[in-house]
């Protein structure tokens, strides 16, 4: 029983991370139908950024978010203006295909550039609380895991508030539902897409911090993109709270599969679930039909 709870707790912690990983991707896809498969690479870059900020400025990793989030907002802004904005005018299928391809190119460029600049060595940010745990009823709960869950809840809640309580947030939702109709409301739709994309990239900072506290190297870009895609599909398009649940579902499924089929095939179970959902319920658990 204790072992089961322990495994479930790990599932929850990694699930919270997966939710954070998928958040930015989900936002961008929901608003403008761009599948940014480079998202994993952006998270990887965020992790490296956290690494250098902590190394040179001696910040606590979570504190470094103050610098990392705005930085990546700007990076997202530049990426959109430079590469993705011109896709807005294309018809839907072309838009999706081209955004997929371009972000794919960015994924390759980023992961290779990172390897060239910083080598493929494993990195991690060590803190005073790395490895520390709380013992609750015989279950070991790592500080960082708890912080991740906490962070995930706060971030999702904050984004939710932004989208439902602010004019601009509502405008973004409007754009995601009906691009043309949104422009008839006086909403500057291309600006809305730009800001959404920038926010989506900025959101990579949060999982970036958590990843930085584990070991990482440039190749995590692919793993993270993978996870983000799986959670995106599980959660369904347009459902932000679904992202959190989708992440948790994936985390728990993976944790349970370690119990059942062993560590080696842990990822496979998640992937199989993913493919099945793609085939039979692509709109996911929470979402409307894409």
């Amino acid at each position: 029983m204790g072992a089961l709870l322990q495994i479930l707790s790990y599932g929850v912690f990694s699930g919270a991370l997966y939710g954070l990983v998928a958040l930015g991707l989900s936002l961008v896809f929901g608003v403008m139908n761009y599948l940014n498969v480079a998202h994993g690479a952006l998270i990887m870059l965020a992790s490296y950024t956290v690494l250098w900020v902590c190394y040179y400025l001696h910040f606590d990793p979570f504190l470094s978010l103050i610098l990392v989030i705005p930085t990546f907002f700007v990076i997202g802004w530049i990426l959109f203006m430079g590469l993705f904005q011109r896709l807005l005018a294309l018809p839907e299928t072309e838009k999706l295909k081209n955004s997929l391809l371009i972000s794919f190119g960015i994924l390759l460029i980023c992961s290779n550039a990172a390897t060239m600049l910083w080598t493929a060595d494993e990195r991690a940010v060590a803190t005073s609380y790395t490895g520390k745990v709380i013992d609750l009823l015989g279950v070991r709960l790592p500080y960082i895991g708890l912080a991740t869950v906490f962070l995930a809840i706060i971030v999702v809640f904050a984004v939710h508030l932004f989208l439902t309580r602010t004019y601009f947030g509502k405008a973004i939702r409007a754009v995601s539902q009906d691009y043309e109709a949104a422009s008839w409301m006086g909403i500057n739709t291309s600006r809305a897409c730009l800001v959404s994309f920038a926010i989506g990239v900025a959101l990579a900072g949060f999982p970036g911090v958590v990843i930085a506290l584990q070991t990482f190297n440039p190749m995590v870009s692919f793993d993270l993109t993978n996870k983000a895609l799986i959670v995106l599909i599980l959660a369904g398009v347009g459902s932000l709270r679904g992202v959190l649940f989708g992440g948790l579902l994936l985390g728990v499924v993976e944790a349970a599969s370690v119990f059942l089929v062993g560590v080696a095939y842990r990822e496979v179970v998640g992937l199989v679930l993913f493919v099945l959902v793609l085939m039979f319920r692509p709109q996911g658990i929470g979402g409307r039909k894409a």
């Binding site: 509502k170 939702r173 409007a174 539902q177 009906d178 043309e180 109709a181 422009s183 008839w184 409301m185 006086g186 909403i187 500057n188 739709t189 347009g238 409307r288």
Partner: peptide, 24 residues
């Protein structure tokens, strides 16, 4: 001018098929 600026000029459209934001 862009569509959103036309709204600021005082022109507002009730679109064909309504085009409401259905999930709102």
């Amino acid at each position: 001018v862009d569509a959103h600026k036309v709204v600021e000029l005082g022109v507002s459209l009730v679109p064909e098929g309504r085009r409401l934001f259905r999930d709102m």
